[in-house]
Design a protein around this nucleic acid. Structure first.
Length: 566
DNA sequence: AAGGGACGCGCG
DNA sequence: AAAGCGCGCGTCCCTT
């Protein structure tokens, strides 16, 4: 064993892996060259607290999980590079920005069996020990000179923990009850149709629409053709979106809306999806940590971020296991209250319903108004009900509103904005700068000034939302990282969830994450301990980010055999 | 034939 | 029941 703080790991030619141990001061202690196949044993035998440093978690970790070992902590150089080279908290980012090999776009995440097919296709990050060590040194120097090093260190640790968790979520999967999903499809659509044909109920509705339009050949699936068919029937719609169609009183409209709903279910989450994504009793979406500019996770394949509420009943715990399902009520306005130190908004957020708190403060009269106003404030609404209500919020919560208004103005000027922990927005595009420059050019066309103003306002709404959405994502990452650590302390059980694999089949594990919601799959006997861990982790995340500032992060928590929403 | 853009709709 | 952020995906349609 060793007292190393960090262990850098990289590939070397001829099937060997190089490990370099660094002491807490960053000095090299020792170096090992081991066969690739031996890495699992080195992971298993490493001391607690060691932080593994590698180029890309998505490239290393799935194979280790498949081998039955977990990593406790890591430092993901790719994700950290992306944060540091943009962050306004880094005083001198020049050498990081010059290391362009580390600026590779997010690789296609490798999931289990697809790992080896994908590796060849990906843009390869440096994976040579000297390059890995050089980049780690650059990142350490950037942190040491940063204006808020503690915040950035927390962000990088949370981002890296998220990268571990993303691989673990894929490996564990979300328990999926195929019979429930199939029964739901058959209820709504009829029996699974032969390939190339519509399910019974979709066909019935299509016939009904065509009869009502008096147009036996009307196309319902092509937007331009459908629009023309509607016009021929005297329906003067400009688009075919759901909201606009409901405005028209015509017998073709109700069956058309029902048809659209059913074909959506069929194409997005029908039998084909079930075969492809939830075949073996688990839904295994591919999570992409840091995939959204704000720091939210993205997903690739399976539509992880779009799991329709309708299908929630198919999320079913294994026998002897249950779910602990938790989501944060109004995460973004709570985060805004804390980062702006707005005690009035924090008071409204005390307890479980921030919107009720705003009503109780006499700012608006109904909960619905409060919700519309808050969303409008964070998204930059200027018209409609939402736009009308925002000024009341501006009077009641000047600090919170001042923060988002400042962010919007900075964005309109083309400046960058930064989240609480130091993630900075990307700069404006070349096209955007060109539009702004054009506006003051006397030779420019007459509409140039208007185009420039519009794009400036568009960017202002982006930066306004960036600081809030991005800081909320940071809170969520800290919540996840804290919870992941706590769950690891629960002892294994005899009750197995075999489809969750060698690592997670015998222990409580995270099974799903979506921005502000988590699902933990755990043995029944652990449900109370997990619930407590979820609560404690949320409190810890609030403390980590906002110290002593009095802000509640209210959780909606339930223990259930399925994940249906109330 | 492949690929990009627009649209619509699911999620937060 | 809306117009305002961030996504992914399936379909259609047009370009290369």
């Amino acid at each position: 064993m060793t007292d190393a703080r960090w262990r850098l790991v990289a590939h070397q030619a001829a099937g060997d892996t190089v490990l370099v141990d660094l002491d807490p001061a960053g000095a090299e202690q020792r170096r090992h060259v081991v066969a690739d196949a031996e890495l699992t044993r080195w992971v298993r035998e490493s001391s607690p607290g060691l932080r593994w440093v590698w180029n890309d978690t998505a490239a290393w970790y799935p194979a280790l999980l498949a081998d039955g070992v977990e990593i406790e902590r890591c430092h993901d150089l790719r994700l950290s590079h992306a944060i540091l080279q943009l962050s306004t908290l880094v005083t001198d980012p020049a050498e990081l920005r010059a290391a362009t090999a580390w600026a590779a776009a997010a690789p296609a995440p490798a999931g289990g069996d697809a790992l080896f097919d994908l590796v060849d296709d990906r843009e390869r990050l440096p994976d040579d020990i000297d390059e890995v060590q050089a980049e780690f040194d650059r990142q350490r120097r950037a942190l040491e000179s940063a204006t808020q090093p503690d915040r950035l260190r927390l962000l990088l640790a949370a981002e890296s923990a998220g990268a571990l968790l993303a691989a673990e979520l894929h490996a564990a999967g979300l328990p999926w009850h195929r019979p429930t999903h199939e029964a739901l499809l058959e209820d709504l659509l009829g029996p699974r149709p032969a390939p190339g044909t519509l399910p019974r109920e979709a066909q019935r509705l299509a016939d009904e629409v065509r009869a009502a339009l008096g147009d036996p050949h009307a196309s319902l699936d092509s937007q331009p053709k459908l629009l023309r068919a509607l016009h021929r029937a005297g329906i003067a719609a400009q688009t075919t979106n759901r909201w606009e169609l409901t405005q028209y009183d015509h017998p073709a409209i109700p069956p058309l809306l029902a048809y659209k709903k059913l074909t959506r279910l069929l194409t997005a989450n029908g039998w084909t999806w079930l075969d492809e994504w939830a075949a073996a009793g688990r839904f295994r979406p591919v999570y992409v940590p840091g995939g959204v500019v704000t720091g939210r996770w993205a997903s690739s394949g399976g539509g992880a971020l779009q799991l329709p509420r309708l299908l929630r009943p198919a999320v079913r715990a294994d026998p002897g296991w249950v779910f602990v399902v938790a989501d944060v009520a109004q995460l973004e306005p709570r985060v805004l209250a804390a980062m702006s130190r707005d005690t009035a908004l924090a008071n409204a957020a005390r307890g479980t319903d921030l919107y009720a708190g705003i009503v109780a403060g006499g700012v608006v009269t109904t909960r619905q108004e409060a919700k519309i106003a808050v969303l409008g404030a964070m998204y930059g609404a200027t018209t409609g009900d939402s736009g009308r209500l925002v000024p009341a919020l501006r009077r009641a919560y000047p600090r919170a509103m001042g923060l988002v208004d400042d962010a919007a103005r900075a964005g309109e000027r083309g400046e960058a904005v930064t989240t609480w922990l130091g993630r900075t927005s990307p700069g404006p595009s070349e096209r955007w700068r060109h539009l702004q420059a054009n506006a003051s050019d006397p030779e420019a066309p007459a509409n140039a000034a208007e185009a420039a103003r519009r794009s400036a306002r568009d960017r202002g709404r982006f930066t306004r939302n960036f600081v809030v959405q991005g800081t909320a994502a940071e809170w969520a990452l800290c919540w996840l990282a804290e919870l992941r650590t706590r769950l690891r302390t629960l002892p294994p059980t005899d009750s197995t969830a075999a489809a969750s694999g060698p690592v997670f089949g015998r222990r409580a594990h995270l099974a799903f994450f979506l921005h502000d919601e988590i699902i933990v799959h755990c043995p029944e006997r652990d449900a109370d301990a997990v619930t407590e861990a979820v609560r404690d982790s949320a409190a810890a995340a609030g403390e980590l980010l906002f110290g002593g500032f009095p802000i509640d992060f209210a959780l909606d928590l339930r223990i259930s055999n399925d994940a249906a929403k109330s």
